[in-house]
Computed example of a mutant assay.
Amino acid sequence: MANVDGSWDTVTKSPMGDQQATLSVTSNGDTFTGTYSGAMGTTEVKDGKVAGDTLTWKVDIVVPMPMTLDCEATVDGDTITGTVGAGVFGSFPMSGKRA
């Protein structure tokens, strides 16, 4: 299992421009808890799952409108890459590095 724990400085390429956020991860077996903090505020990670070096989770946001984002990312050493799904608005690439 990859070392997924820690803080990750991420950037999501969205239609509203680059969205910077810090993802904190504390794994416990095949699950994880944490927060997602950015310019739009801080929210708790929901349904965090760990499968090897891959993380999946959900985040509830209220700005620019209430919705649940579906996120998936793969950890490779000190880098993280993945996607953030915004329902009917599509999926956006996310990347980052260990803080």
Rank of each mutant, 00 (worst) to 15 (best):
P66G: 07
L23F: 07
F89M: 13
L69E: 02
W8P: 01
Y36H: 10
A21P: 02
T83H: 07
P93W: 12
A99H: 08
T79C: 07
A99S: 15
S95C: 08
D5P: 10
V45H: 04
A21K: 06
D53Y: 02
N28Q: 04
V11H: 06
T83G: 13
T35W: 06
L55Y: 04
T10Y: 02
L69K: 03
V4Y: 01
L55S: 02
G85V: 03
M40Y: 03
D70P: 02
L55A: 07
S37C: 09
T68I: 07
T43F: 10
D30F: 09
T54D: 00
G41P: 04
T43V: 15
F92C: 08
A21M: 12
S14N: 05
M94G: 11
D78K: 13
D60Y: 08
Y36R: 01
D18P: 08
Q20I: 10
Y36N: 09
N28V: 15
V62E: 06
D76V: 10
V88A: 09
M94I: 12
A99F: 00
T33C: 06
G87C: 15
S14K: 03
V4W: 00
V62T: 05
T26N: 13
F89Y: 05
G48W: 00
S24T: 15
S37Y: 05
A21R: 03
A73P: 04
M67L: 07
A39T: 15
G77C: 04
G34I: 00
P93T: 09
A86Q: 13
P66H: 05
A73W: 00
V25H: 04
V75S: 12
F92M: 12
S24M: 06
I80M: 13
T42F: 08
D47G: 09
D60K: 02
L55H: 03
G38V: 09
T26L: 01
N3W: 08
T81N: 11
T54C: 01
G82S: 04
T54Q: 04
N28D: 15
T43W: 02
T31V: 08
A2K: 00
T22V: 14
V50I: 08
Q20L: 07
I61Q: 08
